[in-house]
């Protein structure tokens, strides 16, 4: 995260207040630099979390029969997952479906949701894959 000049000015003012007006310039500089570093690292921990979104992509296919969308969406709804996009195609007896789902407000993490979907996929004899959106973004967007 980038700190603006305005913020640096405020940090400097606060530092001078806390160190006293007679504090030597180098000491203030050092203090400010370490504070800025602290803020930068705390808001951007090791690695690159900036690319992480709370979205997951569900891909499902199999032999079409009633109740597939209902079962999947009910599970999402029970878990407070927000469906952002659905696209679906029927090809003869087969269907394919893709959903983009926001799970940031869900109380469950991706793994527990995956487990629920595994149950549904066994019950309905269809395939369901649940993957974090990052992998699609990394592969298909620069």
């Amino acid at each position: 995260m980038k700190i603006t000049e305005e913020e640096i000015r405020k940090i400097t003012q606060k530092t001078i207040e806390s160190l006293g007006k007679s504090a030597p310039l180098e000491k203030v500089e050092r203090e400010v630099a370490s504070l800025i570093k602290e803020i930068e690292t705390s808001e951007n921990p090791a690695g690159s979390s900036e690319i992480t979104s709370g979205k997951i992509i569900l891909t499902s296919f199999g032999i079409n029969h009633p109740g597939i969308v209902a079962s999947i969406t009910k599970s999402f709804s029970d878990n407070l997952c927000d469906i952002l996009d659905i696209s679906q195609k029927i090809l003869g007896d087969f269907y394919t479906m893709i959903m983009i789902v926001d799970i940031t407000k869900s109380l469950k993490d991706l793994r527990s949701i995956q487990e629920e979907m595994n149950k549904i996929s066994e019950e309905l004899k269809i395939k369901i894959y649940l993957q974090h959106e990052d992998v699609f973004r990394y592969m298909h967007r620069i």
């Binding site: 195609k89 993957q131 959106e133 298909h140």
Partner: peptide
């Protein structure tokens, strides 16, 4: 961010098949 149907299918195909 939205994805094309084909893009998603391509990724699934790579990892699953």
């Amino acid at each position: 961010m939205s994805y094309e149907f084909d893009e998603i299918v391509e990724t699934i195909k790579m990892t699953e098949l």
